[in-house]
């Protein structure tokens, strides 16, 4: 059961995304043409304007402030099923906000990295929290990598959430020794992870849209 779950969203995801490329206009329209032209495609870091870098820093710190307590809670609750994985989605939240708000390549990863670095003194996991954060952030970035960051539809964020919702339990299999647990436990583990990631992604999109309405971030200078 879990195997099938894992397979379906993963490999099938790139197909519709690729299909969207030519017809991406509908979602792209809000962006003025000039703005699109000026944006680096797969930017070398040298082409990140400082304002974008520092906006990422601010979001990363916000993420770390959120993840600090979440990190301890999930550690303390790790023995109780679902409660700890129920927080899993929070690790996506900062990167989703950054991608949705700034709509630039690699900002999701950068925010994850910075949140991890800020967490180092507080998380109790030392540098491992940097790796953890990067791992989660990578999945928010993944769907956009497939379309070379040219298309920014909201559902792409959800695709990333579902992928990580499936991959995380699989990769955590060894970590939590899931094989030793009952089948229903395993199933619920998947369900809770996916739900948490999707909910957190929705939250992230909501927050980013609110920020845009407040006239923040979307105005970051172009390349």
């Amino acid at each position: 059961m879990s195997g099938a779950d894992a397979a379906s969203p993963g490999p099938s995801a790139p197909a519709p995304e690729a299909a969207f490329l030519p017809g991406a206009g509908s979602e792209e329209h809000p962006e003025p043409a000039a703005e699109m032209r000026n944006r680096p495609r797969i930017a070398g870091t040298g082409r990140f304007p400082t304002a974008v870098l520092l906006t990422c820093a601010a979001l990363g710190v916000a993420g770390a402030i959120l993840l600090g307590p979440a990190n301890w809670l999930s550690t303390l609750l790790a023995g109780v099923p679902f409660l700890s994985t129920g927080f899993a989605g929070l690790w996506l939240l900062p990167s989703v906000i950054a991608l949705r708000l700034l709509r630039r390549p690699l900002v999701g990863l950068l925010v994850g990295l910075l949140a991890g670095l800020v967490l180092v003194p507080f998380s109790g996991y030392g540098f491992a929290s940097v790796l953890t954060n990067l791992w989660w952030a990578a999945f928010t970035e993944l769907p956009f990598l497939f379309v070379l960051w040219r298309y920014w539809g909201a559902w792409m964020h959800y695709a990333g959430a579902v992928i990580v919702g499936v991959v995380y339990p699989i990769s955590a299999w060894a970590w939590f020794d899931l094989g030793a647990f009952g089948l229903w436990y395993q199933g619920a583990f998947f369900a809770v992870t996916i739900a948490s990631c999707v909910v957190a992604t929705a939250l992230g999109i909501l927050i980013a849209d609110r920020l845009r309405r407040a006239g923040v971030g979307g105005r970051a200078p172009r390349g």
Binding site: P49, T50, A51, R219, P221, R222
Partner: peptide
């Protein structure tokens, strides 16, 4: 000092 137009849209 060039913040307009380089850094401020």
């Amino acid at each position: 000092n060039g913040l307009v137009p380089h850094a401020v849209p």
